[in-house]
Design a protein around this nucleic acid. Sequence first.
DNA 1: ATACAGACAAG
DNA 2: CTTGTC
DNA 3: GTAT
Length: 516
Amino acid sequence: MFSGQRFYIQQAGSVSKQQIRLLSAALSKAGAIVIDKIVNDQTPIDYFIADSKFSQFDCLKFSSSNNLTADSPVLAGCQFISVDWPVACLKAHQVLPFNEFKLRSLESVSESKSAEPDEPTSKRRRSAAVVVEEADVDSSATASTSLASESASQSLRLPPRVGAWICAQSSLSTPAVSEVACPANADIVRILGQMADTYGSTNDKWRVYSYKKAAQAVKRCSKPIDSRASAQSLPGVGSRLADKIWEIAQSGRLAKLDCLSSDETVAALKLFTSLWGAGPVTAQAWVAQGLRSLDDLASRPDLLNRQQKIGLKHYDDFLNRMPRSEAGEIESVVAEAVHQLGNGFIVQACGSYRRGRPDCGDVDVLVTHPDGRSHAGLLTRLVTHLERTGFLTDHLVSCEENGDHKKYLGVCRLPLSTNNSGQSERRARRLDIIVVPYNEYACSLVYFTGSEHFCRSLRHLAKRLGMSLNEHALYEGVIRRGAVKVNPGRPVNTPDEASVFQHLGVPYRPPNERDH
DNA sequence: ATACAGACAAG
DNA sequence: CTTGTC
DNA sequence: GTAT
Ligand SMILES: O=c1ccn([C@H]2C[C@H](O)[C@@H](COP(=O)(O)OP(=O)(O)OP(=O)(O)O)O2)c(=O)[nH]1
Ligand SMILES: [Mg+2]
């Protein structure tokens, strides 16, 4: 019946391993060749079979076969079809037409917008109610940034109105932490966030970027979203997300998310990527090998690297956020150790702690010395010291011994805590330490204080101004070809955090206003 | 077509 | 170089 | 996924 036809069956959704075995056997008997693994440079397959609830896109995205794209040679001329088709064919003892069984194609995307040329709602030029997204380049290019670049070629590009950047706004000025400007939009924000999380366990960071950005835009939107068009008028919301947002607004649900959430391989991907040291690629590989649970991982130490073993050991502790008081205790332990190793060191907890968050995922400690020299070689001594006292229990990343290492990522545990019902061991906590030369203090502080989003926004702004910002310094006179640096530029003198903001032309924001 | 931040460690 | 993390 |  299927003589010589090459099939691949995707295990996902309602298609279980067991079912694949049965179906494969039946198909083979009917003359088909069932491929169990798609490799890029093999004979192209004829049929990609999967649960009917998936689209072609989902198949590629969540497939355990890595590096598959729509135009991979193996997929040339391949049909994406629901499992229902071969099942029906076998039952009917004949090859049925598969028109009715095709999975949703990749190209339902085709220009749904005939972009009205002079549409006044075209993203920029909105009513002033919401002017809050970055890279929303307004034509009124003011903001002749005080000390900013003199690079002639760069100044030809319109500098964005700095006020439109995230890093120029206080995180307090917009909806309070985990709230929404308009309660009616809460579902939308929540669901877009869940979509971002879900895609977070795939390799598609730009999709995640967009979902997050759209969620932010909706969060800041002060009126209920009452039409598809009003959704698409939001910055960062295009045609596809507008559809999804509108679906949520009407029904309170998103079929796409319901579908993905109910899939066990997607759940496994999320579980695995929540393990420290495992990202989307590794998670995908484990799922492809049939692993689904932490117990499965524990039974296969050969598949785990050193860091992942530590991650597994402390799986629950690492997912748990500590009260800021505990972060304070940890900072004190580190500070005391540093001060035993020398005088005059600056020791400062940054990250979410410095931003004033009530709870912290880890403790990020920055160490420097005003004399500009004593920082050298400190980190090794510090780690050794803290290890001896039993405070540090595991090392995730410590630059071995090239003398001038700067970063340490590890695990610590505070001494027994005594409460009314006796003594109890405390949780293991993630501890990050950086030791930096004093001339890099300001930029390190900006970097290490975050938030991540705030940092990225600041760096993006710097780039648009012909500058460059990293944890070491702010550089001016940077020349790029596209995104590639041609000339690295020269470091700007930045004695303190405020000077970094100044050079970028944005108002200074204290740490608690950087919690974006 | 290209950018969406930029760096560093592990292996 | 890829992967993962800050 | 979106914007330029
Ligand atoms: O991709 C990243 C991740 C982090 N950081 C900076 C900002 C961040 O604030 C700091 C510390 O990282 P961490 O992951 O500890 O974030 P946090 O802001 O402290 O949050 P949490 O409470 O989860 O630790 O490092 C970045 O610049 N880029
Ligand atoms: Mg932190």
